[in-house]
Design a protein around this nucleic acid. Structure first.
Lengths: 193, 193, 193, 193
DNA sequence: GATGAATGAGCCTTCATTCAT
DNA sequence: AATGAATGAAGGCTCATTCAT
């Protein structure tokens, strides 16, 4: 899966790149803690830089949020890809579980999947961000289906919907409940349909 | 049509009660349309009253939001109760579908279930609001399980988790996908476990 | 000259009207003193109200500036109208002098005429604000021309241009110089052409 | 082409001098296009240098603006001097027209004259910048007066005032109006007084 | 010297909440 | 009780200026 260079990513100065990373990390933490309505000032403070610096790297709060999401998508996509080698069915369910657990930890994490949904589901603008993940998911799903681990009458769109839902739910629910909830969904995914 | 004063409602003057209703209705519409970040001023305008009136009835924006949620919970609980007479399994799945469809239509609707989750799941404060719904769901679920339509190894907590998830997902996904997603979840709920 | 109601001017509550006036007055003073880049906060402070109040009355800084200008235009137009009774030539030159003296006192005052210029000159959007003044000037000029006090080969556009110029110049120049400058312009306006 | 170091210029390295020139040119263009509120960053970009470089050459935005004005004054003064050879009256009016046309083209150009006004008019600090222009104007005016083309009862101060005014007005008015406006002013300047 | 990243004060604007009418 | 004007604390964003590279 080739990584498309989204724009001409200029090589930043060492310190700038370090700051960019600090900001992204801070934003991830702050948004996870306080939700997306946390102030940019707070993100800057957490990152140990001035607001101006945040805005230099991300011209808009929206852009910052997108960048945070992009990072999450990338990590999810990498996870999905990294599982390609293992047993098809195991890989599929392991990924699903992993994704949902991420969401359980970090509030607002699930929104990333909504992003991906826009690609195959069609409600918003296509967003190249989600395309990457959607593609990875498609491969994962197809392999699992070919391996007989997942019913054949569903596509990525449904998979994404279930991921979104389970992830969102995971934000509100205790670990054991989450686990039993996943069992049910997984049974649904396995059943011949 | 007589109105039964439910629970802890103080008797209000007729016009005050009418205003309260108008505000709630307006808030529901405005929040559904613009999300919870819509301004109180907008709600007031939609209701045809001054902001002051909104704040007289609901001392805080938060309180207004809670009241809107309470209304939704009540309606869901009523729906659940109203289905008690029909076939146990059919009632259960009909309710699930109904709840998810509500969420699909009205943005931010799903949050109501998170509220209910706090009761049986335990992460927030207990909230008497959700208890009502939780009770109704418990009855619905138990009947469906006794009727053999739903597997026995799950409880209200899992049911609520699934409802939250499916509702959230429904906000981001097209109707056909939503429907296929529900099929999967329902299969999972039916499977012997 | 009938005053066209520009929009449905709602009757404001007494206190609101008082505040609106205070704000306008403050804005006039502050802008005159610091130029148009003075902060809205400063205007509010000068008016003795909170910023929010300024923005309630004028939804935008731009709107506030326009309102200040409108006030000035109105006063100039009234002055022009009030001179209709006196000797045509005297009225004309008295008005010209008056307008220029206003500008000399209050920095940025001259911009109001640029506004009026847009009407007959054509570079910006027509602006109903300036139309009023332009009409008044047209009358004043025509009378002076009929009375033989002003050369016949000029129109309002040229008059406005000269008013703008003289007003601007007056901002930078001592009273005696200003006065001699006006003498020259007036001679130019009288000369048979 | 040898460059005569004018007045108090430190000898700069060749590249530094080139940069200084580029910045000045860029500033002139940018300020003309967007007004004086254009950002220093924009000037730097237009000049093809970093902001730091701009600030090395001009310690303050204000200083940069002054330098731009100085350049304009110099050019106007040169123009005035270059016309000394031709017919006195023609030279005078040609210069006046030239100056006003510059202002019409380049927004905020007229401010330069306000600068010059400070010298003979006296409202601001004396500024050696304008003195140069004032001297050149004085010569031009005196010659024209000796030649009988301009009335005798005016001095440089009045001339500058008229130049400022006409230049400012020119910013807001169409070319034909501008031209007729100048006719009037010129008639005023010729009339015996 | 040149560069451009970092800084943070300051600006405009919004909005929950209070209070005089 | 209702109204809507007033308030002021944020929030997002810009930009002159400084400073490490």
């Amino acid at each position: 899966m080739a990584r498309l260079p989204m724009a001409e990513e200029k090589p930043l100065r060492a310190d700038a790149r370090r700051n960019r990373a600090k900001i992204l990390e801070a934003a991830e933490a702050v948004f996870a803690g306080q939700g997306l309505s946390a102030s940019t000032e707070d993100v800057a403070k957490e990152a140990g830089v001035g607001v101006g610096t945040v805005f230099r790297h991300f011209p808009t709060k929206e852009a910052l949020i997108q960048a945070v999401f992009l990072g999450r998508v990338r990590r999810l996509a990498e996870k999905a890809a990294s599982l390609s080698e293992s047993d098809a069915g195991a890989a599929f369910f392991a990924f699903f579980t992993y994704a949902v657990e991420q969401a359980a930890t970090q509030s607002a994490y699930a929104e990333v999947l909504a992003e991906a949904a826009a690609v195959k589901g069609g409600d918003g603008e296509p967003s190249p961000v989600g395309a990457e993940l959607a593609a990875a998911l498609e491969a994962l799903l197809a392999r699992a289906q070919r391996g007989g681990a997942v019913r054949l009458d569903i596509g990525v769109a449904e998979l994404i919907a279930l991921l979104i839902g389970a992830s969102r739910a995971a934000e509100h629910v205790e670990p054991e409940v989450r686990s039993r909830m996943l069992d049910i969904v997984f049974d649904g995914l396995r059943s011949p349909g």
